[in-house]
C-alpha cells in the first residue's frame, strides 16, 4: 500500500460537452474493475458526481469552508456507486469572488491532508470546468497534481476551441513538470464528418483520439434515473464503450506535449472545414456543420 502510485487524471472540455457524464462513467467502470477511485468535481456547478449518487448533490468543499475555517477532507468525501469517493470543490455564487481560487483552495486542501494516500486510491479523476480561463482552472495540470489530461470534445468548433486552449495551457506548464496530454475523448460522434473533423484536429495538434463515444439515448435515460450508463444499463453498447474507454485510460502510461494551433491557424482550420462541409452537403448544411 505504501508505495502504490496513484494515477491522477484530469478531464477538461467546454461546458456541457459531456465531461461529467464521461468522467462518471469512467469512474463507475473502474470501480467495477476493482479499482479504488475518487472523482473530484472542479466546477462551481457542483454536479460532477450526481449520476454516481442517484442524482443527489453533496455538500461541497467550499460550502464547508464558508461555514468554518478548517475543513477535514473526510467531511466532504461522500461514497457513491460501487464505492467511488465523490468530492465537489464547489464555488462562489455567480458574479462574486473567485472560482479559480476556490478550485486551487479545494485541491490544495486535499493534497495537504494526504487524503489520497490514506484512502489507498488507485485513481483520482478531476472533472474540471470548461475552458482554461485563468490560473485557478489550470491548477490540476500544474506540477504535482494530475499527470495525464484528457479532453472531451465534439466536432463543434467551440468544443475544439476549448480543447485547443487546454492544449495551450498544457504546453505552457509542460516545461515545469506539469501534466501532459493523454488524448481526446471524442464525444457525440455520430455523423461521419464529425469523426473526420476530430481526426484532423488531433493530427494537426499531434495527439490522438482515445475513444469515440457516440451520442446515445441510453445516456439520457440513465441520467434521468440519476445514474451512470454503467450502472443503469450495464449491458448496453454504450456501457461497453465507456468500459473500453476506462480500461484504455487505466492502462495509459505515456502522455505527450500537444502542439496547439495559434488563434489564426485555428480559425483557418475551421473555415477550411466549413468550406469542405458546404461542398459535401451542398445546400444541406446541418446544424452541427453550421457552427464549424
Amino acid at each position: 500500500m505504501a508505495n502504490k502510485k496513484i494515477k491522477q487524471i484530469a478531464i477538461y472540455g467546454k461546458g456541457g460537452i459531456g465531461k461529467s457524464t464521461t468522467t462518471s462513467n469512467i469512474s463507475a467502470a473502474l470501480v467495477k474493475q476493482g479499482f479504488k477511485v475518487m472523482q473530484f468535481g472542479c466546477d462551481p456547478k457542483s454536479d460532477s458526481t450526481n449520476t454516481l449518487r442517484g442524482g443527489k448533490y453533496i455538500p461541497t468543499v467550499l460550502d464547508t469552508l464558508r461555514e468554518k475555517t478548517t475543513v477535514k477532507a473526510s467531511e466532504v468525501i461522500h461514497e457513491g456507486f460501487g464505492g467511488v469517493y465523490c468530492v465537489e470543490a464547489g464555488g462562489p455564487a455567480p458574479g462574486v469572488g473567485c472560482a479559480g481560487r476556490g478550485i486551487i483552495t479545494a485541491v490544495q486542501l486535499f493534497k495537504q491532508q494526504r487524503v489520497f494516500e490514506e484512502l489507498d486510491l488507485d485513481f483520482v479523476i478531476y472533472d474540471v470546468l470548461g475552458d482554461v480561463v485563468c490560473g485557478g482552472f489550470a491548477v490540476p495540470i500544474r506540477e504535482g497534481i494530475a499527470e495525464h489530461v484528457f479532453t472531451v470534445s465534439s466536432a463543434d468548433f467551440m468544443a475544439v476551441y476549448a480543447a485547443n486552449n487546454l492544449f495551450r495551457g498544457i504546453h505552457k506548464y509542460s516545461n515545469a513538470g506539469g501534466a501532459l496530454l493523454g488524448g481526446v475523448i471524442a464525444n457525440s460522434i455520430n455523423a461521419p464528418y464529425a469523426k473526420e473533423i476530430i481526426d484532423d484536429f488531433v493530427k494537426q495538434t499531434k495527439t490522438q483520439v482515445v475513444e469515440y463515444v457516440p451520442r446515445s439515448v441510453t445516456v439520457t435515460q440513465s441520467e434521468l434515473q440519476g445514474k451512470t450508463t454503467i450502472e443503469a444499463a450495464p449491458n448496453s453498447e454504450q456501457a461497453k464503450i465507456y468500459t473500453r474507454l476506462a480500461l484504455k485510460i487505466a492502462e495509459h502510461t505515456e502522455s505527450k506535449v500537444p502542439e496547439p494551433l495559434d488563434v489564426h491557424e485555428l480559425r483557418e482550420w475551421a473555415s477550411k472545414w466549413a468550406d469542405h462541409l458546404l461542398a459535401l452537403e451542398t445546400g444541406e448544411v446541418t446544424s452541427k456543420a453550421s457552427c464549424i
Binding site: P92, A93, V96, G97, G102, T105
Partner: peptide, 10 residues
C-alpha cells in the same frame, strides 16, 4: 483572506 477571495468580500 482566502474566504473573501473565493466567495467575495462585500
Amino acid at each position: 483572506t482566502e474566504k473573501e477571495i473565493i466567495f467575495g468580500g462585500e
